[in-house]
Nucleic acid binder design. Structure first.
Lengths: 268, 268
DNA sequence: TTGAAAGCGCTAACAC
DNA sequence: GTGTTAGCGCTTTCAA
C-alpha cells in the first residue's frame, strides 16, 4: 500500500548508484574552444554534438558537455565525475599527454577530428583522402585552391593539405575574414574547394559561390547558397563515433584493430 | 610520504560528494528537439548553450545536455541526477505541467524562449516589444511582413506576432522551405523582418537579402549576407540566464520580483 | 588540532 | 524466494 505508492513515484538516485556500481552512466563530450574563435568554428560541431547526445541518451547514458581551453585544458572532470566514456573533439597534439594522464586506464576515449599517434586511443575522422579522390574522379573541374577549416590539430591540417594534392600557395587555413578575403581575391574566378559549410558562408561574401565546392563536414548543406557545389558526409560521423563508443563500452575496450576510423562520404 | 603522493594526484569522487552534500553540482540544459526539424532550428541555440556552459563551468558547475522529445519529454533526468538547477529551452505550454511535477520544489528552473503563466518558474526571453519598437523608431523603412521562427511555445509566437503590429496575412511562421518560398513570393520587393539568422539564410535563397532586416536572436550576425539589415541582441541572453541562475542558486530561490526577464537588444 | 564514526541512497552478497 | 547487511567515497559531527 504505502509501498506501492512509494514505488509509484520512486526515483533512483543515480549518484548513489554510481558509487556502488562504479559506473556513472555519464559520457563526456569535451570540446576545445578558442578565445575569439570565428563564428564558423562555433557551429561546426553543433550537429555532431546534438546527434551524439541523442544517440547516447537513447542508450541510457547522460551527456556532460564541457568546453576545453585549447591552451590549457582542464580535464579533471573525467576522473572527478568518473565518466564512463569520453569524446574529445579537435585536440591540440601537444595537449594530448595531459589527456592521457587525466583519465584512468580502461575508460574509453575517442578523439574526434584529430590525428594522434597513440594506438591506445581511438580516432574518428572524415576520410579526406577518399573525399578528395572521389571529388576529382566524379568531376572534370580542375580545382585550383583549397580552404581548410582551422583545426587545433596540426597533423590533421597537414593530412588534409596532403590529401588535396595542392601546393602551399594554393592552400589557405581559415583564420579570420580579412585573411580569407585576401586569399580569395588572389584566386578570383578560379574553382576552389572549401571545408565546412560555415566557412563557406564566410567565403561567399567575397566570391561567387558558384566557384566553390563545399566539403560539408558540419552536417548542414542546407545552409549553403544554392549555386555552391557540395560534397556531403551525411550523418555518418556521430553514428560512427557512437557505435565505436558502444563497442568499447560493452567489450571492455576491445575495439577495432585499427585505432583510426575513417568516415566516408555519401555517394555524392 | 605516501600520504603526500596520494595527496598529489588525489581526485575527489563527485558522486560520493553529491550524495552527502545533497548537491550534484550539475546543471541541466534541456532542449526540445523535433523529429525532422529544419536546419535553422538545430543551430539557433548552439551559441546560447556554448556560452552558458562556459559561464557555468567557470563557476564550478558541470553541464548535462539533454534533448527533449517535444511531444513527450522524458524529464526523469532532473530528479535522477539531482540537478541543482535546470534550464528548459523552447517549451510547449501543454508539456509544462509534466515539468513542474518532475522536479523537486526548490530546484531553480529557468524557462528560456517560452511564456508560461506560472510565477514559480522564471522565464528568460528577448524583449520583442522593445525590439520592434526600436526598429520602427530608428528607421523610416515601412516593414510589410514578418517571418517568425517556429517556437514550440504558442504563447511566445503570439506575443511576437502582437509585438510586430502586423496583421495575420503579413505574418509567416517558419515551417519548411517550400512554405517560406511561397510566402516570400507573395511579398517580393517589399521590406520584411525575419527572426533568427539561420532562418534568414533560408530566406536569402528566395529574395534579395537587402529587403530583409534580421532580428539576430541566435548570436550570429556574422553569418548574414552583407546586404541584409540586422538588429542584434549581443551576448545578453546566456549572461542573463546565468546571472538569474546564480541568484536562485545562492539565495535559495529568492529571485527577482517578476518571474519574467526581458533581455533587451544592443544599441543597434 | 587530529581522529574516529555515522550516514548519504543505493546494489550485491549473503543468509534465512 | 525474502530480508538483512556491508560498503561504495565522501562530509560532517562528535570525541578525544
Amino acid at each position: 500500500m504505502l509501498d506501492a505508492a512509494k514505488q509509484l513515484n520512486y526515483v533512483p538516485n543515480l549518484a548513489a548508484r554510481s558509487l556502488v556500481k562504479q559506473k556513472s552512466g555519464l559520457i563526456g563530450i569535451l570540446i576545445n574552444r578558442a578565445e575569439n574563435e570565428g563564428f564558423w568554428r562555433q557551429f561546426r560541431y553543433s550537429q555532431f554534438i546534438n546527434r551524439l547526445e541523442q544517440l547516447l541518451s537513447g542508450y541510457g547514458y547522460h551527456v556532460v558537455l564541457f568546453g576545453l581551453d585549447a591552451a590549457s585544458p582542464k580535464l579533471d572532470i573525467i576522473s572527478e565525475r568518473k565518466l564512463d566514456g569520453v569524446f574529445v573533439v579537435d585536440v591540440k597534439t601537444e595537449n594530448f599527454h595531459l589527456i592521457s594522464s587525466h583519465f584512468s586506464v580502461g575508460v574509453p576515449l575517442i578523439v574526434v577530428d584529430s590525428i594522434i599517434d597513440d594506438a591506445l586511443f581511438y580516432k574518428v575522422n572524415y576520410d579526406y583522402l577518399d573525399a578528395f579522390e572521389t571529388m576529382q574522379a566524379t568531376t572534370s573541374v580542375q580545382y585550383e585552391y583549397v580552404i581548410i577549416d582551422n583545426f587545433n590539430n596540426k597533423e590533421l591540417l597537414e593530412h588534409i593539405a596532403f590529401a588535396s594534392k595542392l601546393g602551399p600557395d594554393s592552400i589557405h587555413i581559415m583564420q579570420n575574414d580579412q585573411a580569407l578575403e585576401l586569399f580569395l581575391r588572389k584566386h578570383e574566378h578560379k574553382k576552389g574547394i572549401i571545408l565546412n559549410e560555415f566557412a563557406a558562408i564566410s567565403a561567399a561574401k567575397y566570391v561567387d559561390p558558384a566557384n566553390l565546392t563545399v566539403i560539408c563536414s558540419a552536417g548542414c548543406p542546407e545552409i549553403l547558397p544554392l549555386s555552391a557545389g557540395r560534397f556531403t558526409f551525411g550523418d555518418r560521423k556521430p553514428e560512427a563515433a557512437f557505435q565505436l563508443m558502444l563497442q568499447l563500452l560493452d567489450n571492455s575496450m576491445k575495439g577495432p584493430d585499427s585505432s583510426y576510423i575513417h568516415v566516408k562520404a555519401d555517394n555524392n
